[in-house]
Amino acid sequence: TRVETATETAWISLVTALHLVLGLSAVLGLLLLRWQFPAHYRRLRHALW
């Protein structure tokens, strides 16, 4: 049971790290898009909202 718990903890930390990385890359990508294509971003936002 001790090994299982350790594996579970490792998986949880791995998944958390993955989610953090994905979230950060998504935010960075959005910022980059907004910085590179302001007109396109505004049009996209206008279409979405």
Results as ranks from 00 to 15, higher is better:
1 T>M: 07
2 R>F: 11
2 R>A: 09
2 R>Q: 13
2 R>D: 11
3 V>C: 02
3 V>T: 02
3 V>P: 00
3 V>L: 08
3 V>Y: 05
3 V>E: 00
4 E>A: 09
4 E>P: 02
4 E>W: 04
4 E>Q: 05
4 E>D: 06
4 E>Y: 06
5 T>A: 02
5 T>S: 02
5 T>R: 01
5 T>N: 01
6 A>W: 04
6 A>E: 04
6 A>P: 02
7 T>P: 14
7 T>D: 11
7 T>Y: 04
7 T>W: 09
7 T>R: 08
8 E>C: 05
8 E>H: 06
8 E>Q: 05
9 T>F: 11
9 T>D: 15
9 T>R: 15
10 A>G: 13
10 A>W: 15
10 A>N: 15
10 A>L: 07
10 A>Y: 14
11 W>K: 15
11 W>V: 14
11 W>F: 09
11 W>S: 12
11 W>A: 14
12 I>F: 11
12 I>G: 09
13 S>L: 10
13 S>A: 14
13 S>Q: 08
14 L>N: 07
14 L>K: 08
16 T>F: 12
16 T>G: 08
16 T>R: 04
17 A>C: 15
17 A>F: 05
17 A>N: 03
17 A>R: 03
18 L>N: 02
18 L>P: 02
18 L>F: 09
19 H>T: 15
19 H>F: 15
19 H>S: 15
19 H>V: 15
20 L>H: 00
20 L>C: 10
22 L>R: 01
22 L>N: 00
23 G>L: 14
23 G>C: 13
23 G>I: 15
24 L>Y: 01
25 S>E: 01
25 S>L: 14
26 A>H: 00
26 A>C: 10
26 A>Q: 02
27 V>R: 00
27 V>Q: 03
27 V>I: 14
27 V>A: 07
27 V>T: 04
28 L>D: 00
28 L>K: 01
28 L>T: 09
29 G>P: 04
29 G>N: 00
29 G>D: 00
30 L>E: 00
30 L>C: 12
30 L>T: 04
31 L>E: 00
31 L>Y: 10
31 L>G: 05
31 L>K: 00
33 L>M: 12
33 L>H: 02
33 L>I: 10
33 L>N: 00
34 R>Y: 07
34 R>C: 15
35 W>C: 10
35 W>K: 03
35 W>S: 05
35 W>R: 08
35 W>N: 06
36 Q>W: 08
36 Q>S: 07
36 Q>R: 12
36 Q>V: 08
36 Q>M: 11
37 F>H: 03
37 F>Q: 04
37 F>P: 01
37 F>L: 12
37 F>E: 00
38 P>Y: 09
38 P>L: 11
38 P>D: 07
38 P>N: 11
39 A>G: 12
39 A>F: 12
40 H>A: 15
40 H>R: 10
41 Y>A: 14
41 Y>D: 03
41 Y>T: 07
42 R>V: 08
42 R>K: 13
42 R>C: 08
42 R>A: 14
44 L>T: 03
44 L>G: 02
44 L>A: 04
44 L>P: 01
45 R>W: 11
45 R>V: 11
46 H>S: 07
46 H>I: 05
46 H>E: 10
47 A>M: 06
47 A>E: 05
48 L>I: 10
48 L>C: 05
48 L>P: 02
48 L>F: 03
49 W>D: 03
49 W>P: 02
49 W>F: 05
49 W>I: 05
49 W>N: 09
49 W>Q: 10
